[in-house]
Design a protein around this nucleic acid. Structure first.
Lengths: 255, 255
DNA sequence: TAAGATTTGTTCGTATGTATC
DNA sequence: GGATACATACGAACAAATCTT
């Protein structure tokens, strides 16, 4: 997309050979317009082309592999192939960026409040019955109030999947990614940090009512109502989260 | 951050040794709660600890290096250190995700329209005079209408820097990152794809008027006005982009 | 300035593992 | 099962960078 300006800055300090080889291969892939699945030269040929040792070439391939740009297979017909960066990998890589920075749950909700209602408004009237059905199926996973903390977490993860799935249905890849990324972060927090341990029947009921209204608005193409319902839903969830207290992405210190 | 569930999925296909070593080191860093700048064991010690060859260890370090998680220096006192993923690297890594996916300029603007007005509203009344001065200094770079395409591009990059800088001033790291990422993508498009080649005095004047109004609203703590001005600004820019995109396309087809 | 110490960077030869035919 | 084609891994040696004295 942005055609990867590998050498954005110019005089840059001497880079190690693997780094330079990786850049060269990246540029070459862009130049050739290679597509995911296309084959890259094998180790032997790269060794010849760059005049470097096997170890150096292998380190270069690892650099590209870590970025999700290439995949390698052993055996006949094997080798390195252009890879499409998966959403999971992109999420993990981006999460690393925030690892040492302070991102609070409220920060996430502030963005969700701004983005998700717009998504809902855009989607109203555009979803197929199959897609609406899929969303309703997810809702079935929390049709009954949770009775313990474990089930509460499971249900919360499902409701986050509802939002991630919804974001997949839109045409805006960027918007969809941002929303899904936030849902992923909240899911990880729920699962690994054992968040959301206070089942609350009243909130559960109101949250579910929101989603039912949302589905109806989406089905009937009521854009404004979809926006408003989603907005209420986000604001309510946000207030609920306030109790969970800030600074979560910061410091985890295992138990 | 999400405490890096390195082995999120279970029985997963056999992973290569460098991959496993990299995971182990990552988990170890998390366990130890190491901070940026902290030293990692040297090659020699890792070779001993994992019982693997130098090449394997080095490939593992490359995997971590590509993710921005470690930095390496040669010489006495050198070695590998925990690194804080830079914004530039995070941007590049995330841009790779979108490389093979269709993200249109309009997609970007749809998200900007949703996010930037909220940022402006939040920032109203919180900026120091120094910060406001910095923004005004950037505006000076396009105080006079551009006379040619080259200057138009330069000015457009500067105005994108205005937005990126503004996003830095907020407290919300996540919101700030998303906004800055979009500004970066648009900047790359402007510079490398030679976009925005039709200076338009009328639009220039209106855009500049918006930013002047915005600064005033921010300075006087008028949150609602800041939101509205930013929203108008984004909507205008979005329309402008549609026209330019169309023109670029036409020109491209014509030749 | 120069020498020495320390640590990563790079090479080469060889051997092993793995998937396809 | 065997042959083939490819990546994976090891170990010893040497090169380069950089800090200290």
């Amino acid at each position: 997309m942005t055609s990867a300006p590998t050498n954005a800055s110019q005089p840059r300090a001497r880079r190690s050979r693997p780094l330079r080889v990786a850049d060269a291969i990246k540029d070459w892939v862009v130049e050739q317009g290679l597509q995911p699945g296309d084959r890259l030269p094998g180790e032997a040929e790269l060794i010849a082309r760059f005049g470097m040792s096997k170890g150096t070439i292998r380190e270069a391939m690892r650099l590209l592999q870590a970025q999700g740009l290439v995949e390698t297979k052993t055996g006949p017909g094997g080798g390195s192939f252009v890879g499409e960066v998966s959403r999971e990998r992109a999420n993990a890589l981006l999460a690393n960026y925030f690892y040492f920075r302070d991102v609070t749950i409220d920060d996430i909700y502030e963005v969700r409040v701004a983005l998700e209602p717009e998504l809902a408004a855009r989607l109203a009237g555009t979803l197929t019955e199959a897609q609406l059905g899929e969303l309703e199926a997810i809702m079935e996973e929390y049709a009954v109030p949770a009775t313990d903390a474990e089930e509460e977490r499971r249900q919360h993860v499902a409701s986050l999947r509802f939002h991630a799935r919804l974001s997949d249905f839109g045409q805006n890849t960027l918007l969809g990614y941002f929303i899904a990324f936030m849902a992923q972060i909240l899911t990880d927090l729920t699962v690994y940090k054992r968040l959301y341990t206070t089942p609350n029947h009243d909130l559960w009921q109101r949250g579910r009512a929101h989603q039912i209204d949302l589905i109806a608005a989406l089905r009937h193409g009521d854009s404004d109502r979809a926006r408003e319902v989603m907005r209420s839903h986000m604001l309510m969830a946000r207030r609920l989260m306030e109790d969970q207290e800030a600074e979560v992405m910061k410091r985890f210190i295992a138990e």
